[in-house]
């Protein structure tokens, strides 16, 4: 994927530049990055397995097809729940959202779906909690969920 290549090249360039300027400082940075990674490895494994298990039981196409059948007030709510749980990367999510919009799903529901997909992460909660604590992570996700609904409603009104 070209987007991944960008991140990898940026990392390599940054690493090379950093090492060229100050080797010791670079080593210190790498060590601190490594320590953080080791601390979080169990959470990343948890994320990996939860997401894969979820996708195995409920394939994403089924979810999207389900959303396409909803209408009225149910559609934005279904979009919000779906967007909060699913972890669809942007390059896949936007074409899907475009297709849904064209097949008649309301602008509000599409905006809610896109926003919750990016902002709310039920499956990434184990990782988030490690950084900010369970209470803060919970609050951020709840506020983002409500915020996404508001954004969706307003987009629907304005468009």
């Amino acid at each position: 994927m070209p987007k991944d290549m960008i991140l990898i090249s940026v990392t390599l360039v940054a690493l090379a530049a950093s090492a060229a300027i100050d080797r010791k400082r670079t080593m210190r940075g790498l060590k601190s990055g490594y320590r953080m990674l080791v601390r979080l490895l169990p959470q990343f494994l948890l994320l990996l397995i939860l997401v894969s298990a979820f996708l195995t039981v409920v394939p994403q196409e089924v979810l999207v097809e389900f959303l396409g059948r909803q209408s009225g007030v149910v559609a934005p709510l279904a979009a919000a729940v779906l967007g909060s749980i699913a972890l669809i990367p942007g390059p896949i999510a936007y074409p899907l959202a475009g297709a849904l919009h064209q097949s008649g799903v309301s602008t509000t529901a599409v905006a809610v779906l896109v926003t919750t997909l990016m902002m709310v992460g039920v499956l990434t909660f184990p990782v988030e909690k490690e950084y900010f604590g369970a209470r803060t992570a919970c609050l951020r996700n709840l506020l983002s969920f409500v915020g996404a609904l508001i954004i969706g409603l307003l987009v629907g009104v304005v468009m």
């Binding site: 991944d4 940054a14 940075g29 790498l30 601190s32 990674l37 990996l48």
Partner: peptide, 18 residues
């Protein structure tokens, strides 16, 4: 993740140091 996660942490470590 195998590609992304190490990159993210290398960058974070460098940010931390610089």
């Amino acid at each position: 993740m195998v590609l992304l996660v190490p990159c993210i942490f290398i960058l974070i470590g460098l940010l931390d140091a610089w």
